[in-house]
Simulated scan of single mutants.
Amino acid sequence: MERRAFRVAGFAMLGVLVVIAVVIGVALATLEEGPASLVAAVLAVVAALILTGFTVINPNEARVVQFFGRYVGTVTDAGFHWAVPLSTKRRISRRVRNFETDRLKVSDADGNPVEIAAVVVWRVVDTFKASFGVDDHISYVAVQAEAAVRHLATSYPYESHDDGRASLREGNVVSEELTAELGERIALAGVEVLESRITHLAYAPEIAQAMLARQQASAIVGARFKIVEGAVGMVQSALERLGQLQVVELDEERKAQMVANLLVVLCGDRNVQPVVNTGTLYG
């Protein structure tokens, strides 16, 4: 697991270097040539070791410190620091990143080919796992994101025709499941998924026209159903109102004829031309 590395304020160690430089100068000026050279050489080696420990860390960055292959710890505080000398300090960004998958062509739960793409917002939360858990945590996130999107697309239909069945078009449900599944997949890399969203969803070109016709037919059927339902209610209300006001008394045959005429007028998709009966002429 990630742990804090030993560190000292960089400017403090910079002051130590200045003191060492002054001591070297004084030693060379006051001591004899042999001892002076020895002291100067030792101090020069110490100064060189100190120089290898300096590092600068920007905000939302970290340095993974390794001493001859051994993980020493991680420095996460921004600023000028001095860590273990003769160590390698690998930079790891802890900033929030986003990754958008390519448009993937997969089959949904009903077997229909669809095109789908998603964007994933993530960040590194464990620098040890990001450095040593996987070979390249950025590539790992990209591959796992595409795999999670493919699995999600095969688990849901493009659109649901049954009540209570979720579909890919329900953004909130799909996004929550994608975030949860992707979080489990990339936890090994020390990465946290903040959000994931479907950015592109469409039928594949070879069936897009047929599916569009199907959607249009479903919309027409739904609209007709609403029209008929409303027309029946209007006819019923008209008959009840006529009976209450006793405007006219209609037998069953005339009621049936009136209902038929009203339904034709209300449910037709074209304007109706009325025919007015003005009476009968007898010679």
Rank of each mutant, 00 (worst) to 15 (best):
A219F: 07
V265R: 01
G10I: 04
E176P: 00
R3N: 11
T280L: 14
V264I: 11
Q246W: 02
L266V: 01
V72Y: 08
L178Q: 01
A27N: 14
L168M: 03
V134K: 08
L168G: 01
I186H: 06
G34D: 14
E240L: 14
Y71T: 05
A147G: 10
A189L: 06
L28D: 10
A21W: 09
E177G: 03
Y71G: 06
H151F: 08
A21C: 09
P205C: 03
T55C: 12
S87R: 03
S107Q: 12
G10P: 08
V96D: 01
V125P: 01
Q216I: 10
G111C: 07
A62Q: 05
S237F: 08
A40F: 09
R95T: 13
E249K: 12
I138Q: 11
A202K: 09
A41T: 15
A153D: 12
T76M: 03
Y203R: 07
R95A: 09
A21M: 10
F80L: 13
S175L: 02
I186L: 00
R254E: 15
N172F: 13
L178Y: 01
A40G: 13
P157G: 09
G230T: 10
E206P: 05
R214D: 04
E2D: 15
A78L: 03
R241A: 14
N60H: 15
V119F: 03
I227P: 01
D135G: 08
D110M: 09
L14D: 09
Q244G: 01
R169W: 02
L17Y: 00
I227Q: 12
V232D: 06
G111V: 09
A213S: 14
